[in-house]
Design a protein around this nucleic acid. Structure first.
Length: 221
DNA sequence: CGGTTTTGACCGGCGC
DNA sequence: GCGCCGGTCAAAACCG
């Protein structure tokens, strides 16, 4: 359930093992949640549902949430820089710009001190889930599957199917705990999500985001 | 019929 | 130089 709260969400650098304050975690994570338009898998639960579950106070969940964001981590970026405001730069998409604009402005990203690092920002997070294809609002085309060493589980490779957008994503089950799915995003979408989250409000106390809607203002009926 | 999935082949980087 | 390994390509199958 709500393992992701202010306490459970801890940045974890896979290489350095570095961790960062959970407060930032809550904020950056929200950038990833957008709703809806699942392309293929009908069984895929929407990511926003996950967010709802994650950001909702720990109430007994009647419907029984299917997954639980447990932790996530950045890669390919100096941890210090990332947590000092670069997060938006490391985020993959336009939805981030919409959903977390205020947060982004609150923490203006300083121009990268380091020379332009290669555009290979990555973010990964682990989700407790029955299914592996999480619906993050984008349309993905699978282009490969590989079994990796040190894991009995195959790894799946996806590419954003929007033309000109070469964001990639890979998904694999946690080898130690098969009830978890590890999703890694790589790159930045050059377009808006087919189903962008248009509203998000932040809880002042916890810093967590609550998605309020998934329709563009004005398009509501 | 167009887009996606599947699956083995292929390729480049890296360590030995 | 060779082989392993992770990542990608691409052709054919598949599906709505």
């Amino acid at each position: 359930m709500a393992a992701v709260g202010a306490h459970a969400a801890v940045y974890h650098h896979p290489v350095s093992g570095l961790s960062a304050p959970a407060g930032d975690a809550a904020y950056s994570m929200s950038s990833y949640f957008s709703h809806g338009g699942s392309s293929t898998s009908s069984s895929a639960s929407s990511f926003s549902a996950a967010l709802a579950a994650a950001t909702t106070p720990p109430l007994p969940d009647p419907s029984g949430s299917q997954f639980d964001i447990s932790e996530f981590f950045f890669d390919d970026a100096p941890p210090a820089a990332v947590f000092n405001g670069a997060p938006t730069a490391a985020l993959p998409d336009g939805a981030a710009a919409n959903a977390t604009r205020s947060a982004a402005e609150a923490v203006p990203a300083p121009a990268p001190a380091a020379v332009e690092r290669p555009r290979t920002e990555r973010i990964a997070f682990r989700t407790k889930s029955e299914i592996e294809i999480l619906d993050d609002g984008y349309k993905w085309r699978k282009y490969g599957k590989k079994s990796v060493k040190n894991s009995p589980n195959p790894r799946n490779y996806y590419r954003c199917s929007t033309e000109g957008c070469n964001v990639k994503k890979r998904v694999e089950r946690d080898k130690d705990d098969p009830s978890y799915v590890v999703t890694t995003y790589e790159g930045t979408h050059n377009h808006v999500s087919p189903s962008t989250v248009y509203y998000a409000s932040q809880d002042a106390a916890s810093g967590r985001f609550f998605v309020a809607g998934t329709q563009p203002p004005g398009s509501l009926n």
